[in-house]
């Protein structure tokens, strides 16, 4: 029922960027909350942040950076008509995304074993600053992990399209868009990492 199909890659890329803006604002709201509560509870945030493992955080940062690189390189591969390399690079991206999630799972698991999770009695006893810090920590990293999962599904869908030759050197805007989404997830982590793990 639509008017005739007319492909406009720039329109689809513009749409993706606009969507990324809404994502930026979504996390922007959380950064407002973080800023305010950090300002009001400097000491508690400082001490609580020291409990997070800088090592795991750094590993996860590097994992995401590498995965961003591989998905960016897969665009070059597609442009150079190297379908096999493109699929391989996308595969690496997906594996790295899963590795990130696994790390996150163990990290969260270790907090929960120490009875630190939202609403836990141990956490409540530790005072308001800690409740806020860990509330934000779980909510923001959780929302970020949800974005990783969405990104992985998106990228997996793109990979299947490449396999079926629906995406090739003449028509790869969807791959670019999935890449843009993945980079945004990376960008958010670039800020989450220092705010939760480093600024102590």
């Amino acid at each position: 029922m639509t008017a005739e199909i007319h492909r406009d890659d720039l329109a689809s890329k513009t749409g993706m960027w606009l969507f990324l803006f809404t994502e930026m604002l979504l996390f922007g709201g959380l950064f407002v909350v973080y800023t305010v509560y950090r300002y009001r509870n400097p000491q508690a945030f400082h001490l609580a942040a020291e409990e997070l493992s800088v090592f795991i955080g750094t590993i996860n940062t590097i994992i995401l950076l590498v995965s961003s690189t591989t998905i960016a390189m897969s665009i070059t591969a597609i442009q150079k008509k190297n379908k096999k390399l493109a699929l391989m690079l996308i595969g690496i991206t997906i594996l790295l995304g899963l590795a990130f999630l696994a790390n996150k799972y163990f990290e969260w698991g270790s907090h929960i074993r120490e009875h630190i999770y939202p609403g836990s009695p141990v956490l409540t006893l530790r005072g308001h600053g800690d409740v806020l810090f860990y509330g934000l920590y779980f909510f923001m990293t959780g929302l970020h992990a949800l974005h990783i999962i969405i990104g992985l599904v998106f990228i997996g869908f793109i990979a299947s399209k490449i396999m079926r030759n629906k995406i090739d050197s003449g028509n790869y805007v969807l791959l670019e868009n999935s890449g843009l989404y993945w980079h945004l997830v990376d960008l958010i982590w670039i800020f989450l990492f220092p705010l939760f793990y480093l600024i102590t």
């Binding site: 961003s68 690189t69 960016a72 890449g179 980079h183 990376d186 960008l187 670039i190 800020f191 990492f193 220092p194 480093l198 600024i199």
Partner: peptide
């Protein structure tokens, strides 16, 4: 830390 994060983002935005 925030300056370095901003620097990293600008690379991701401009190149990636």
């Amino acid at each position: 830390a925030l300056f370095i994060a901003a620097l990293k983002s600008s690379f991701v935005l401009r190149i990636f």
